[in-house]
């Protein structure tokens, strides 16, 4: 299963943090910092997988990728296919791109609860829910509609 999804910027500031197993907030903070340290020390021309047994227990790995100023990190155990995780990350980024038309760090910062909603349409409880970009975008649009309808009614 997927243990967590983290988006952070190249300064190590978290932009989205979602753990699918309960982590106390202090621990979360610590994990993010450790992961940031790991990512910073990675050379350029190396694989995108890092073993993180020491942080999460045996057989847990993370895959990371940089998009502009952001690190995307998926943490997962041995019941997931590493290469598929890489693809899933691609799917996630593509969807963000569609929802924010050319996503940038500020989009993620100011819309972080929308990003959560998007992520919840892709991964649920650490399992892959949907991988079709169009399906996810459609679902998110429906939710947006619900939101604005309620907001109109509310005003």
């Amino acid at each position: 299963m997927i243990r967590g999804v983290i988006i952070m910027n190249d300064q190590g500031q978290p932009r989205l943090v979602k753990f699918y197993e309960y982590q106390p907030v202090e621990k979360q903070h610590e994990l993010i910092r450790s992961i940031y340290r790991i990512l910073c020390s990675r050379a350029e021309n190396v694989s995108n997988f890092v073993k993180v047994d020491s942080l999460f227990g045996s057989d847990v790995r993370l895959v990371y990728k940089t998009f502009a100023t952001l690190y995307f990190v998926f943490i997962f155990d041995n019941s997931e296919n590493e290469l598929a995780m890489l693809d899933l990350m691609q799917v996630f980024v593509e969807i963000l791109d569609k929802c924010f038309s050319n996503v940038c760090e500020l989009d993620v910062v100011f819309n972080f609860n929308k990003v959560h909603t998007i992520l919840d349409e892709i991964i649920l409880g650490g399992q892959v829910l949907e991988t079709s970009t169009s399906e996810v975008v459609k679902a998110v649009e429906e939710i947006s509609k619900m939101e604005s309808k309620a907001n109109w009614q509310g005003r």
Binding site: N111, N113, K114, K145, E147, N151
Partner: peptide
């Protein structure tokens, strides 16, 4: 993106 309640107040805090 207003539908996701980016009220000014919330944006102000982030800023």
């Amino acid at each position: 993106m207003n539908e996701f309640q980016n009220h000014n107040n919330f944006m102000d805090m982030i800023r």
